[in-house]
Simulated scan of single mutants.
Amino acid sequence: MPPHTGLPFPDIDPVLFEIGPFALRWYALAYIVGILLAWRYMRALIQNDRLWAGQKRPTAADLDDFVLWGTLGIIIGGRLGYVLFYNPAYYLEHPAEALAIWTGGMSFHGGFAGTVIAMVLFAASRGVSVLTLFDLAGCAAPIGIFFGRIANFINAELWGRPTDVPWAFVFPGAGPEPRHPSQLYEAALEGVILFLVLRVLSYRFQLLQKPGFLAGAFAFGYGIGRSIAEFYRVPDAHIGYLSGFFTMGMLLSVPMILAGLAVMIWSATRKPKAVAE
């Protein structure tokens, strides 16, 4: 039986359209759509009284104002995370390129940290529960992650390891070997599956009434999904494997898994405070 030669990579231009000097890339569109849909989903959650049983939550106006804070946290944190965690030597020599977000190169873990900081500052300035804000953002974050991973696939970046599975692709710039479409694996694990799990926890088990639990579930679930995907994804060439099969993505996911598990246990066992209408 002849070896599997791989599926041809779809010929998708990373630039959606250009008008003069302005170019809209799929990568940028993924962020825009992901953020807008996540915002709408958070609004739907706070407007469903059945999920809260009188538990105090942010208002629609609060979430509208938070969109800018969260967007800045995602973009600034994501880019700084990539620069500091994945390629500090290169950007030390080319500091101007550290701002070139449109070329790709965003770290989820950096974006996560940036968003957490933005949420803490916003909650303090508006007098809303930071734990509840964490929960809402955690429920909605997989939407943005899904679109971001699809954009990674369109950009033919962050490809997977060589394989002979029938759905392997030959990625441009990655050599002739068929490879795992690891971006699509991450879109499924960190996006679709994690979103559905959190939706069940929020709607069926009504865990928005236990502040912090869903935020912990998101961190734990993302860390697990990312660690699984790392077994199929090629680590950044300038970093490689840290030890054996261990990668930078796995290393950065370990604190998320441990912290997420700790927060879920803490939230599930803490005594509820009096409900404030």
Rank of each mutant, 00 (worst) to 15 (best):
F9T: 01
V275H: 02
G240F: 07
E230R: 04
E230H: 06
L68W: 12
L72I: 14
S129H: 10
S125A: 15
R204A: 12
G81L: 08
Y91P: 08
F220Q: 06
R79G: 09
E177P: 01
L45S: 07
G20T: 00
Y31C: 02
D135V: 08
A237R: 15
A89Y: 06
A168W: 00
I265G: 02
A237S: 15
V120Q: 13
L196Q: 02
G20C: 00
K210I: 10
F17S: 03
G70W: 11
A215R: 13
A118G: 13
Y222C: 05
A187N: 02
I74S: 04
I46K: 13
R204T: 13
Q209D: 04
M250F: 01
H109C: 11
A174F: 08
A113S: 14
I19C: 00
G260R: 10
L242Y: 14
V128S: 12
F205G: 01
R79E: 06
V197Q: 03
E277H: 07
R25V: 00
V263W: 10
R270N: 12
D49T: 12
A30R: 07
V15E: 04
L84T: 12
L37M: 11
A113E: 05
L158R: 01
T71N: 05
R50T: 13
V15M: 00
P255R: 09
R179P: 10
M264E: 10
P2W: 00
A23I: 00
R57N: 11
R226L: 09
N152Y: 04
